[in-house]
Simulated scan of single mutants.
Amino acid sequence: MSDGLNDARAIRVAEIMTDFRNLQYYLSQLRASPTAEEYYLEGYSLLRQCSAEAQAILDAPFSASSAAPQGDSEREKQQLRAIIVDAAVRRFQCQRAYLRAHAGLRWMNSRNSVLRGQKPNASHLSALQSADSTLRMELLSLTDAHVDNTLRTQDASQGKWLAEDPTLAQIQQILMSRR
């Protein structure tokens, strides 16, 4: 017997998918034009990696059954729950890539601010090393718990129904099983 929450589940799927779509759009807009000498620098490599991760998330097949529930509210409930989990995992992955890409963009802007169109030289060394260090520290702070917290805080502040969202431990377990 269905519990009468399928409408709430369907709305939650739409909310998560909207967030996912917005994150994917942002990640698809990443543009950096490093010189040949800069191409393999940490921040530029990070931006390429985040773009590739976003594409891989889009390319990954839906992991749950796609059979239509055909009016059976209990099957609909199970299908919506599966979609919530899959969508939440994808959104988590995109949020992580987004936060990492944002750190990379800050690094790129810091670097450009230091160089001001010049080629790097000894006078820039300290400031460029500082930008690199800041990027590394920021990336270390972007733990799975932090990523999860940013999503849950945002959802809770908007009054969204979170009762069936997967926990961080469940998300991590799913991601580990996909490797």
Rank of each mutant, 00 (worst) to 15 (best):
E74F: 10
K119R: 15
G104A: 04
R75W: 07
Q49L: 09
L58V: 13
S51D: 07
D59E: 10
G43V: 01
E53T: 12
Y40F: 10
R21Y: 09
G117K: 06
S73I: 11
D144W: 05
A64Q: 10
R91I: 12
S141A: 14
R96L: 08
S65H: 04
S123L: 15
Q118Y: 15
E138Y: 05
Y98I: 01
R81Q: 11
A103K: 01
Q49E: 15
L41V: 08
C94T: 13
N149C: 14
S66I: 11
V89M: 06
F92C: 02
Y26S: 07
A56Q: 05
A54E: 00
T35N: 04
A68K: 15
S157W: 03
L142A: 06
A82G: 05
G159F: 03
L47H: 00
M17V: 14
Y26W: 13
F20M: 15
S130P: 09
S28Q: 03
W107D: 00
A88L: 06
T18V: 12
R81C: 10
L47Q: 00
D72K: 03
N112I: 08
A145I: 03
D19N: 04
Y40C: 06
S110D: 14
Y44T: 04
R31F: 12
A60W: 01
D155S: 05
P34T: 00
E76T: 09
Q24T: 13
P69K: 04
Y40T: 10
S51I: 06
H124N: 06
A101L: 02
H146T: 15
S126E: 12
A103M: 02
E38H: 03
A32K: 08
R48A: 08
T150E: 00
L105F: 11
N112Q: 15
Y25A: 12
T134R: 10
S130C: 14
S63G: 13
P61Q: 05
R100D: 02
L41D: 11
R111S: 05
S65T: 06
A97D: 02
V85P: 09
R136E: 11
N149K: 12
Y98V: 01
Q55P: 02
A54I: 00
A56N: 04
A145N: 07
G43P: 02
G104P: 03
G71T: 01
A127E: 09
F20W: 14
A67E: 09
A67P: 04
C94F: 13
H146E: 11
E138F: 05
Y25Q: 10
E37H: 05
D144E: 09
S66T: 12
Q49F: 11
R136G: 07
G71S: 02
F62V: 11
I83D: 08
